[in-house]
């Protein structure tokens, strides 16, 4: 037992984390999720909002879009100044977006699947304010830790094919603590056509008042496509509360931008400890 236990311990020390038990999956998977697990450990250590910062009063309005899966449309999640500021923080650091794939490859650039640029903005007061707003939106003490925010820029033709934000249930269970519990996709800039966020498995609402937020020219069979509107956000719960597995109806894509530029912001919250 000692012989077996030692390398396990060493490995844990080496990469700064301990994993619950050895993986029986392929080595590739092991390494892939290992890296994510490392990142997760790092993100958990980031304090949410040091006390000195002022928290702006949220000016948003929520519209409950769907109960199962939980999808909430948030009008005015960030204001114009915040959006501009986040874009300027990201502007010098944009690089091609990677995909973290289910087959265990981490950090692939594949423009036919995902064609955009991303950057993590420096965590200044505004970023922390938005982070705090995102956390409190989900209920006091109800959210896990946040992944560092990601600003995404989509230019002509920019898109992201249908995907889930979550890691597959089994892989997440055997190699990391929790999963991406919730997603905010915030539109920061949208002087564009196209570029909607499509959920093919959600049912289009009947009430025409949604047409201000949803592309009501899409065919019914295409599901629901949210229009890119600066300042507004779509919030959804990725995991089903019954068994914590990724909700299959949350498949989504960033449709191609057909003119102009779209800039979005991803805020991912991980599974809270007591959930």
């Amino acid at each position: 037992m000692k012989v077996l236990g030692l390398p396990h311990l060493l490995l844990g020390v080496l990469i700064g984390i301990s994993i619950p038990f050895f993986l029986h999956e392929s080595q590739i998977l092991h390494h892939a999720y290992h890296r994510i697990a490392q990142l997760v450990e790092k993100w958990k250590q980031i304090p949410l909002n040091p006390s000195v910062l002022q928290v702006a009063q949220p000016g948003y309005t929520i519209h409950l879009f769907s109960l199962d899966p939980l999808v909430i449309y948030v009008e005015g999640f960030v204001n114009g100044d915040e959006a501009q500021h986040l874009i300027s923080l990201a502007d010098e650091n944009f690089q091609p977006s990677e995909i973290w794939s289910n087959n265990g490859t981490v950090g692939t650039i594949a423009p036919h699947i995902r064609d955009s640029q991303w950057a993590s903005p420096t965590r200044d007061a505004v970023v922390r304010r938005v982070e705090k707003r995102a956390a409190e939106f989900q209920g006091y003490g109800r959210a896990g830790f946040l992944e560092p925010l990601k600003v995404l820029k989509y230019e002509l033709g920019g898109h992201y094919n249908h995907h889930y934000d979550t890691f597959p249930h089994r892989e997440a269970r055997i190699s990391m603590e929790g999963n991406r519990f919730s997603t905010f996709f915030v539109y920061l800039q949208a002087n564009c056509t196209g570029g909607g966020t499509n959920f093919p498995r959600l049912s289009p609402p009947k009430d025409d008042r949604w047409c201000q937020f949803i592309d009501c020219d899409e065919p019914y069979e295409a599901g629901v496509t949210f229009r890119p509107i600066p300042g507004n956000a779509i919030y959804w719960h990725n995991l089903r509360s019954s068994d914590r597995s990724p909700h299959p109806d949350l498949l989504h894509s960033g449709l191609p931008v057909t003119s102009g530029v779209k800039v979005g912001l991803n805020i991912w919250t991980w599974t809270p400890e007591d959930w």
């Binding site: 196209g194 009501c216 020219d217 496509t225």
Partner: peptide, 23 residues
């Protein structure tokens, strides 16, 4: 207010409505 392509609309009796059926 065309925001995505293709968009299909029906014009009948002077009013415009959306076509959201199969294409």
């Amino acid at each position: 207010d065309i925001i995505s392509y293709p968009t299909l609309r029906i014009i009948s009796n002077g009013s415009i409505s959306r076509y959201r059926g199969s294409r």
